[in-house]
């Protein structure tokens, strides 16, 4: 076998081996099944949840909140960040606001948001949007400010009009930072969403994990943890793919 193939085989084999060890340890009674159920029993629980349609419902609810909240936070965040990066007056005006609001743990605002937006999806969507918004603003501002001055010199020297300056120089120049910032924002929004669903929801993966804990259905709880992990991995992969398509000049 070629070395690359050997490495690839190992990356698949090692988690499988870990699962087998876990299962064997469970069977031998080395792991307390009340806290850590065996992989097989988790799989069975997951299968049951999937068959009943409950799992799809929870995933759907979480995904909807995640996507809507993320877009509601990221789109204005990219826009405000761009303007702040490009215009020193706007930057001077908004910097103190952003600096003051960014460090507030947004989950702390959830009760307040529930007062304003009600107990439904609204409050969860807004709490995700808020945590994404400030992170995105800061990342994009930095991304634009970090653009090498020489690109602006070249653009000016060749008489670049404003719309083209934005489309051909500023946007592509800041794109790597924008995408890296969005990746971080996505991770944060998952954390905030699960937190919000723990305490204030009747659906979603966070609710599944929390309600399973309350009824001591540990297998279901693990199903929820694994599903949210997979969701995190998939969304990161998705953004990586976007990066590959949108930033081809950075490809290694």
């Amino acid at each position: 076998m070629k070395r690359v193939n050997q490495e690839r085989a190992l990356t698949i084999l090692s988690p499988v081996a870990a699962l087998i060890v876990w299962q064997l340890a469970s069977n031998a009674g080395l792991v307390n099944q009340r806290y850590v159920p065996s992989p097989l029993s988790i799989a069975v629980a997951g299968w049951d949840l999937a068959l009943s349609g409950e799992l799809a419902q929870h995933i759907g609810a979480s995904l909807r909140r995640l996507v809507v909240g993320f877009v509601l936070g990221a789109v204005p965040g990219v826009f405000i960040g761009m303007v702040m990066g490009l215009n020193r007056w706007v930057r001077a005006a908004l910097d103190p606001l952003v600096a003051a609001l960014y460090p507030i743990p947004k989950i702390a605002l959830l009760p307040l948001l529930m007062l304003v937006f009600g107990l439904g999806d609204g409050s969860k969507v807004v709490v995700v949007a808020m945590s994404v918004l400030f992170l995105t603003i800061i990342n994009i501002t930095v991304g634009v400010l970090q653009l090498d001055k020489i690109y602006f010199d070249v653009a000016r020297n060749y008489g670049t009009p404003w719309p083209k300056l934005f489309r051909r120089v500023i946007l592509p120049g800041a794109l790597p930072t924008i995408l890296a910032g969005l990746r971080i924002s996505l991770g944060v929004s998952l954390v905030v969403l699960v937190g919000a669903e723990f305490v204030a929801s009747q659906s979603g993966i966070g609710y599944l994990i929390w309600s399973s804990w309350q009824t001591l259905m540990v297998e279901q709880m693990f199903v929820g943890i694994i599903v949210i992990t997979i969701l995190g991995v998939l969304s990161t992969l998705f953004l990586h793919e976007c990066e590959r398509l949108l930033v081809p000049w950075r490809r290694d």
């Binding site: 090498d148 020489i150 690109y151 010199d153 070249v154 060749y158 008489g159 670049t160 009009p161 083209k164 051909r168 120089v169 592509p172 120049g173 794109l175 930033v247 000049w249």
Partner: peptide
């Protein structure tokens, strides 16, 4: 310019043709 004057996000042909594009 000294160096780094090319736009990293444009291919060679796009960099060279920049003035024409403008």
């Amino acid at each position: 310019f000294q160096e780094h004057g090319l736009f990293p996000w444009m291919t060679v042909v796009d960099n060279v043709a920049y003035s024409l594009e403008m």
